[in-house]
Design a protein around this nucleic acid. Sequence first.
DNA 1: AAAATAAAAGACAAACATATCTTTTATTTT
DNA 2: AAAATAAAAGATATGTTTGTCTTTTATTTT
Lengths: 145, 145
Amino acid sequence: MGVFSKTCEYAIRSVFFIAHRTASGNKVGIKEIANGIDSPEHFLAKILQDLSRKGIVLSAKGPNGGFYLDDVARKRPLSDVVEAVDGNSIFTGCGLGLANCSETNPCPLHHEFKAIRNQLKDLLEQTTIADFSESLNLGITKLRK
Amino acid sequence: MGVFSKTCEYAIRSVFFIAHRTASGNKVGIKEIANGIDSPEHFLAKILQDLSRKGIVLSAKGPNGGFYLDDVARKRPLSDVVEAVDGNSIFTGCGLGLANCSETNPCPLHHEFKAIRNQLKDLLEQTTIADFSESLNLGITKLRK
DNA sequence: AAAATAAAAGACAAACATATCTTTTATTTT
DNA sequence: AAAATAAAAGATATGTTTGTCTTTTATTTT
Ligand code: FES
Ligand code: FES
């Protein structure tokens, strides 16, 4: 089990892929996305339907349709994607699973854990979906092994 | 879903509890532990059986029996507990779920993610089970809400 | 030796995450 | 209007995690 759920991993990889493939106003179909990020097609379809409903990605039916991002969507922080799929427990929850993480009732790892958790939060809040398009264009980074 | 599995959360909380309650050579029973960390008794029993088989905790059957830790077990780093339960993917796995996290085939988040992942690794490797007994004794930290 | 205690082990069940397949709806092209 | 396209929606399946209950084994106390 990773930091994010499998669903969330596919979600992040797919928005990166869509951003990268639809930079100049075109759209990309579910099959191509699923292949591009090495995910099960129908499972990814569910995820993108959900992201579409929540306004994280945009979609169009019919010929020449597919998924895409507009300028607003491109500039969304990654934290919005994570929160849409996995909720905000990764940003606020106790590392040891206590019901309420707080300064007044901390678990033994609270202070150390909170510092690390906040760094992950900062990373995801300060980088946008579009931020990684260039390294993908250059082939420096990958979305499938 | 947190950083650790529910099973691992219970495991960490229980070793903290056992360390705290068995400081002077005594033992503590499963019921008391389950109540002390607010976990399902029989589920925790399975976890402790596993930790016992792996040598993370010690146990004794019969009257006055229970779980305990010796000096060696007390000084084990938390990373041993986590690795025994959740494996090492939290320390080495790709944040976006790619099959192999590496410098030569990095995902877009690789460098940033790796830095955070390594901090968690360092935290867990550099603190031992016994390190938190004092703050538990003083009631400064808690193992149940 | 018998009774009591407590962990170990086994069988089962519910909930959730992940995945697959089929049908429907909306849109565009012809 | 008809045909083609592609996402949306629905139904079903598989696997894993989490949780419960019962029986067995080992140990100690009486
Ligand atoms: S209480 Fe556990 S991380 Fe804050
Ligand atoms: S390749 Fe993704 S974190 Fe290293």
